[in-house]
C-alpha cells in the first residue's frame, strides 16, 4: 500500500512540474511583454527587465520560476493591481471558492448516491420516474440556469435566501449557489450509482451470496455497496473539473468573492501572470484531488491495494 501511494505522489509531483513547464512556455510564447507601453524608453524597459529578472537567460528564468512557484510565490500582478503579490490577491478569495465547490461536490455526491442506490435497490416505479426526471434535468440543464431559477423563485419571489453573497451570513447566502452546482454532480453520480449497483446485483457473487441464504440487506450492505463505489469515485474526478469551471459563472451571478471573479477580471485586462497563476492553482488542486481519489481506491479495493496476480 505504501508503495502504491508513494508511486502516486511521485506521479503527482512530476505532473505539477510538467504543468509548470507548459505554463512557462505559454508566458514566453505570448507576444509582447508586460512593458509594452510606448511611453517607456529602452533604458526604462531595461531597468524594469532587470528588476523582474527578465534579462537573464531563459533557463535561469525557468528555474527561478519553478523555485518561486513551488515556494508558493505566484509572482505579482501586472495590470489588475500592479505589483501586488498574486498570493495576496488569492488569499481571501480562494477559501470561498473552495468551500462552495467542496460543499457542492459533497451535496451532489451524497444525494446522487442516495438517489441512485435507492432506485437500484427498491426497483420502485414511482422512485424510478422521480429518478429519471431528476437525472435528466441535472445532466441536461447547466448549473447557471438552476442558479437563475433559484434566484428568481427562492430569492426574489420567495425571499427565502439573500440574492447576493453576504459576508455576515456566508452560509445562508451561498446555499443557492451550492445547490445549483450540486445538481449536475447529483445527476451524474446518481446515474453511475444506479447502473453500477444494478450490475453488481446481477453479478454471480451476489447470486451466490443469495444461494447461501444471505438476506437482501446483508447482500446490499456487504456485497453491493462497496463494489459499486469504484466507478462512482472515478467519475467524481471528472465532475470536479466541470464544477470548477461552472463555479466561475455562478460566482459572478451571486457576487461571491471567489477566485472566479478574479479570473474573469484578469482575463479581461490581459493580466497574464494572474491568469497563469490561477491556472496553476487549479491544476494543483485537481492533482491533489486525484491523488486523494487514488488513495480512496486503494482503501476500497484489495486488487489495487495488494496488486499482484494469482499465484
Amino acid at each position: 500500500m505504501a508503495r502504491y501511494i508513494g508511486k502516486r505522489i511521485l506521479i503527482a509531483i512530476v505532473t505539477i512540474l510538467v504543468i509548470l513547464f507548459i505554463l512557462f512556455l505559454l508566458l514566453q510564447l505570448m507576444p509582447g511583454s508586460p512593458f509594452n507601453d510606448e511611453k517607456l524608453s529602452a533604458e526604462q524597459i531595461a531597468v524594469l527587465k532587470e528588476k523582474y529578472g527578465l534579462d537573464k537567460p531563459v533557463v535561469v528564468q525557468f528555474l527561478t520560476y519553478v523555485k518561486n512557484m513551488l515556494k508558493g510565490d505566484l509572482g505579482v500582478s501586472y495590470a489588475l493591481s500592479p505589483d501586488t503579490p498574486i498570493t495576496d490577491l488569492i488569499a481571501n478569495r480562494f477559501p470561498v471558492t473552495l468551500k462552495i465547490g467542496f460543499f457542492g461536490m459533497l451535496l451532489g455526491t451524497l444525494t446522487g448516491m442516495l438517489l441512485g442506490f435507492l432506485t437500484a435497490f427498491f426497483k420502485n416505479k414511482v422512485l424510478n420516474v422521480f429518478y429519471n426526471i431528476l437525472t435528466l434535468l441535472g445532466v441536461a440543464v447547466p448549473s447557471y440556469l438552476f442558479a437563475m431559477c433559484f434566484s428568481y423563485f427562492l430569492g426574489y419571489r420567495g425571499k427565502l435566501f439573500p440574492l447576493l453573497y453576504d459576508f455576515r451570513s456566508p452560509i445562508s447566502s451561498s446555499i443557492m449557489a451550492v445547490v445549483a452546482m450540486s445538481l449536475g454532480v447529483m445527476a451524474v453520480i446518481a446515474r453511475f450509482s444506479k447502473a453500477e449497483a444494478s450490475d453488481v446485483m446481477k453479478s454471480d457473487y451476489v447470486l451466490f451470496a443469495k444461494c447461501q441464504g444471505l438476506s437482501n440487506t446483508t447482500t446490499i450492505l456487504r456485497y453491493v455497496l462497496k463494489n459499486s463505489m469504484m466507478p462512482v469515485i472515478t467519475v467524481m474526478a471528472s465532475l470536479l473539473v466541470g464544477l470548477l469551471t461552472g463555479s466561475l459563472v455562478i460566482e459572478q451571478m451571486f457576487s461571491i468573492p471567489g477566485v472566479g471573479g478574479l479570473l474573469t477580471n484578469a482575463i479581461a485586462v490581459n493580466d497574464y501572470s494572474v491568469v497563469i497563476a490561477l491556472s496553476f492553482v487549479y491544476s494543483v488542486l485537481y492533482i491533489v484531488v486525484m491523488l486523494i481519489l487514488d488513495i480512496m481506491y486503494c482503501v476500497i479495493d484489495p486488487r489495487v491495494r495488494l496488486g499482484g496476480k494469482p499465484e
Binding site: S203, D204, Y205, F208, A209, R222, Y223, K226, N227, I300, D301, P302, R303
Partner: peptide, 11 residues
C-alpha cells in the same frame, strides 16, 4: 465461473 462467484472486495 469461479472467477466471478466470489466477492472481489472481501477476504
Amino acid at each position: 465461473d469461479p472467477m466471478t462467484s466470489l466477492n472481489p472486495t472481501m477476504s
